[in-house]
């Protein structure tokens, strides 16, 4: 699922710090904006936009963080509004709902752990590519220059 790969070049100390920060920030934003699933996406997006002119390593990891947050948004917001409708309207808790929330929980915990792991690894300058997201990021993020 998670591959450690050699990057094109050896990233510098501060590049590694910024790349790691992009993951760390998404974690903090999740915790701060806990009931609302969109806060961390907005925060990650702002961080990404701020680093659009950064070095390749930084941009790459910002993009990967952004992509993972985006995919989580769809899953989470559906679950969020389903919960809201159960609390505030007369909809009942069905088996489907429990299954969905359980699946969402597993997804989120996996993503959370993967993000922590990646944040630690990138801090040391190690390039971490996630399954599927890594390839997608390489396609989106051009090395440029």
């Amino acid at each position: 699922m998670i591959n450690l790969k050699k990057f094109k070049y050896e990233p510098g100390e501060h590049e590694a710090e910024t790349a790691s920060n992009s993951y760390l920030m998404s974690l903090i934003a999740i915790i701060m904006g806990l009931p609302l699933p969109i806060i961390n996406l907005i925060a990650t997006l702002i961080f990404y936009l701020g680093n659009r002119k950064g070095t390749y390593f930084v941009r790459w990891h910002c993009t990967q963080a952004l992509l993972s947050q985006t995919s989580m948004l769809f899953i989470n917001s559906y679950g969020f509004w389903w919960t809201i409708s159960i609390i505030f309207s007369d909809e009942n808790i069905s088996n489907n709902y429990i299954a969905y929330i359980f699946a969402t929980l597993i997804f989120n915990v996996t993503e959370f752990i993967a993000t922590i792991y990646t944040a630690i690894k990138t801090r040391n300058g190690i390039h971490v590519e996630w399954w599927f997201y890594g390839t997608l990021t390489t396609l989106i993020c051009k090395s440029g220059k």
Partner: peptide, 17 residues
Amino acid sequence: LGIWTIVDWFSIQKATR
């Protein structure tokens, strides 16, 4: 709205440099 504050915790050092 609190979001920029979080983002700045992580990007202000780079901005300073």
